[in-house]
Nucleic acid binder design. Sequence first.
DNA 1: ATGAAAGCGCTAACAC
DNA 2: GTGTTAGCGCTTTCAT
Lengths: 344, 344
Amino acid sequence: MTPDKDITIYDIARHLNISATTVSRGLKDHPAINKNTRKKIAEAAKALGYRSNTFASSLRSRKTHTIGVIVPRLNSYFVASVLAGMQDAANREGYNLIISHSLEEVSNEVTNAHTMFNKRVDGLLVSLAYNTENIDHLQPFFRKGIPVVFFDRTWPHPDSTSIIIDNYQAAYNVTKHLIDNGSRRIMHLAGNLLRNVYAERVKGYKQALKDHKISFEEKLIYTSKLDEESGTRSAEYILKMKEKPDAVFSANDTAAVFCMIRLKAAGIRIPEDIAFAGFNNDPISKVIEPNLTTVNYSGYSVGEAAVTSLTNDLNRISSIKTTNSIVLRSDLIIRGSSLKNKTS
Amino acid sequence: MTPDKDITIYDIARHLNISATTVSRGLKDHPAINKNTRKKIAEAAKALGYRSNTFASSLRSRKTHTIGVIVPRLNSYFVASVLAGMQDAANREGYNLIISHSLEEVSNEVTNAHTMFNKRVDGLLVSLAYNTENIDHLQPFFRKGIPVVFFDRTWPHPDSTSIIIDNYQAAYNVTKHLIDNGSRRIMHLAGNLLRNVYAERVKGYKQALKDHKISFEEKLIYTSKLDEESGTRSAEYILKMKEKPDAVFSANDTAAVFCMIRLKAAGIRIPEDIAFAGFNNDPISKVIEPNLTTVNYSGYSVGEAAVTSLTNDLNRISSIKTTNSIVLRSDLIIRGSSLKNKTS
DNA sequence: ATGAAAGCGCTAACAC
DNA sequence: GTGTTAGCGCTTTCAT
């Protein structure tokens, strides 16, 4: 005996001898419904095994209760943490997530944005691809007043909020830490400077040098995609240098770790010859020897903040147009890779 | 000048002086539509900026084109790869994904399953939580004929297909490899034996021992959640043993790596004193020293296979009721952690 | 506090 | 090959 037919509000209405309208209202705590009727409706709904039909509801109310998410890649620990935070927050707020990835390639990002638009998401959460140079593909959203929130890899826009950490300050702190531990010739593994996160990290790095009267050298910046291969290549770049750096500050942990592996294979001692620091507190930073000094910040919190900031806007609790950015906490985690003076 | 009003098939119909039905059919390549009309419809749709309203469509056709996914955790490299594969395949097939995670806890899995059911997903993809003991919470799907496909952490069910690798054979190969490289007293770090993946790995391990006339010892099995902390604790268990193992085969890389780290800190040499092998080919396996011997299999392919197997069922191309399981390829990757004889 | 009626945009059934 | 009609289940006026 399978209860094949789906229960609708009409079934409940008939069952209770009231109108469908009242059922609809009772089900969503409409103020003008008698407490008693509401209770009866809830009971009947449960007894009959009612499930609301979101399509009918979306069709009528013109709300999809769906949030689109575009991330640069799925297979990174940081992004996974962000998605976990988003998922939980979205669930709490009664929203669905549609997740897509650009594979760090702007052309995919454009396609994804179109898809999201056609799926009529109520709002969009975006972290930009490595090579995105403008946000024309997001214009349809802005034009239609669909809220967009950037996280991590952001783009300034008056109608949009960004969820970030203070990358400048964090990078400053890392660099200062390396200097304080005896390094003077500090290399920086940078990402694409179009991306705020990498640009800010370079700025913090430069400012720290300046504040410690160390002159900046262009050849101490190695720009790459910061993936495994780039890490290895950066090491080979270093090995070829006449005047080698005495420290490396990498804009992410992956590049730092694979740079370290290659350098260690070449007989370089870490941190004695070259100290190291990374960014992100990826699990690999606790596995590499020596353990990698890095910047920790919670992807989970970033994800939560992005969703709540969006849903607050949708629910008219607060507008993303008035909030420029939400800055989350980050911490320098000091580990063996940066401690030249082992007695400290 | 914002084109505020949404374009519907009626607008196209009026524009072309044909009926909405024809437009509807033309838009989805219905066989009985003149090639010419179809072309005109497509052009008009584009010119007017038409986007189909999926809710109206879902409401009418009773299909959501949405697939529910329940994974044990989001923040693992393997799962991230699976999701990437699912995302791409789903996109190709014109389906959306709703992703949720159980955090390895059956109670969350139950809630997630309910949510998915209420969202009326067309199908469900599940990898079970660590402690799931039955699949009662999936009964509503089976009862309603909504296809369910298990991947990785599966459960036998006549109406469902499983996407797996041959865990038994892979574990057998790992164990044999360790034996071939001179180990006789091989410890196994196991997961919950309720989960097929871990049960099969134990079986393969035992069979390999048997085939090499090594008697199995209960105390050489250490069962845990296989997370970082468990890895560390397993090392402490080993350090307390009177007769220590000369090899460890861990059912995942995380436990293997953190076990290695702890043992190394205690002065144990790897692989000389204790050889190591893991499972999954997680990025950390290439970072730990010595690099970890492990079993590689493509999460991306698992994800793709799960989605296509589901959509093939939905599109009546092939039924998941007739396919019991799809077994994907896996490979033993031999690295330094298992090579006692360095000359090899 | 509750109800009647209309319609969101689409598709299926049935004509022609 | 194309059109007519009806209705999916819900929410939203506008009454009462």
